[in-house]
Amino acid sequence: MAPESDHPSRDERSTTARSGQTVASAAAPAPRPLDDADRRMLRELVTDARLSVRTLAERLHISRANAYARLDRLQSSGVITGFTARFAPERAGLATTAYVSVNIEQNTWRTVSAELAELPYVESIALLASEFDVLVLVHAPDNATLRSLVLERVQAIPGVLATRTWLAFEEIRGKGPFAQ
């Protein structure tokens, strides 16, 4: 029998942007395809996640019971992984934005990504098919904090072979797949 690989299967790669926790796994039921009402619901929630179910139902022209059922199904199937506020990093005191590429030892993805997810200032972590293995988005208060994070914390994680850091001068968010 072959040893278990530390690289996730395609079904295990669905992760939240903030926590890095797996939200879909091989054991989870396959989600049913989204219909038009599901996509409209996602569009409304992406625009304003604080909408009440009553307002959501009114905007979608469906009953509140249907809205509750759809919302519950989208959450339990892992399509909706949580609700969050978007923020402007620089206005929140996080003036330095960087992308950090990380090369790791083979079969260390799960342990390295779990350790990265626990570090302060880490926004997202992505496993890539690239010249480097992992890309980490960081929002830090300043360059000194970023330097300390990369050189003292990231490079100290067992399995990390090398890092490379790119400072971002400006970030622009796209509309996303469910925007109007």
Rank of each mutant, 00 (worst) to 15 (best):
A156Y: 03
L127T: 05
T84R: 13
T108V: 06
R40D: 10
G78F: 02
A140D: 01
I62R: 12
A85C: 03
A168V: 15
E105S: 08
A49V: 11
V150D: 00
A26M: 04
G159K: 09
P31T: 07
R110Y: 11
D48S: 05
R39G: 01
T84K: 09
A126R: 13
S19C: 13
V122C: 04
L34E: 08
S63M: 02
D48I: 01
V150E: 01
E44P: 01
A98H: 09
P8F: 09
W166L: 11
K175E: 15
A162K: 14
L161G: 03
R54E: 06
L34K: 05
T84S: 12
P120N: 07
R91M: 15
F169E: 10
T111H: 06
D35I: 07
P33K: 13
T22Q: 13
G159C: 06
S9L: 15
L51K: 02
L146H: 01
A26T: 15
V160H: 07
V150Q: 00
A2M: 06
T15D: 04
R54C: 04
I172G: 11
L167A: 10
R10A: 15
L56Y: 00
E105T: 05
H61T: 08
D72Y: 12
E4G: 03
V46G: 09
A129E: 08
R18K: 10
P158E: 15
P8V: 13
V79M: 05
D11Y: 08
G174F: 00
E4M: 14
S52I: 03
D6L: 12
Q75V: 15
A65D: 14
M41S: 06
S124I: 00
A140C: 03
R164Y: 15
R39Y: 02
E131L: 11
I80M: 09
A28I: 07
R10E: 15
P120H: 11
E152H: 09
Q106P: 10
P33F: 07
L149G: 04
F87M: 10
R73I: 01
S52G: 12
P177W: 07
G176R: 04
A95L: 12
L127G: 07
L128S: 10
R73Q: 11
A179I: 11
A69F: 10
V122M: 01
P29I: 07
V46S: 14
S124T: 13
I104R: 04
R64K: 15
P177L: 12
R64F: 04
S5G: 06
V154N: 00
Q180M: 12
A179M: 10
T84N: 09
A156F: 05
A85E: 04
V53C: 03
A37N: 09
S63C: 07
G176D: 07
I157P: 01
E12N: 12
D133P: 04
R40H: 08
P89N: 05
L60V: 02
L161W: 03
V160N: 02
E12T: 04
A98S: 11
A95M: 05
A28T: 15
I62L: 13
P120Q: 02
I62T: 14
A88V: 14
S77P: 03
R73G: 03
A24W: 13
A26D: 12
E115S: 11
R70T: 01
T163P: 05
E115Y: 02
A162W: 09
H139Q: 11
F178M: 08
T22Y: 00
R39F: 05
L135C: 07
I172C: 04
L149K: 05
R54L: 08
R13W: 04
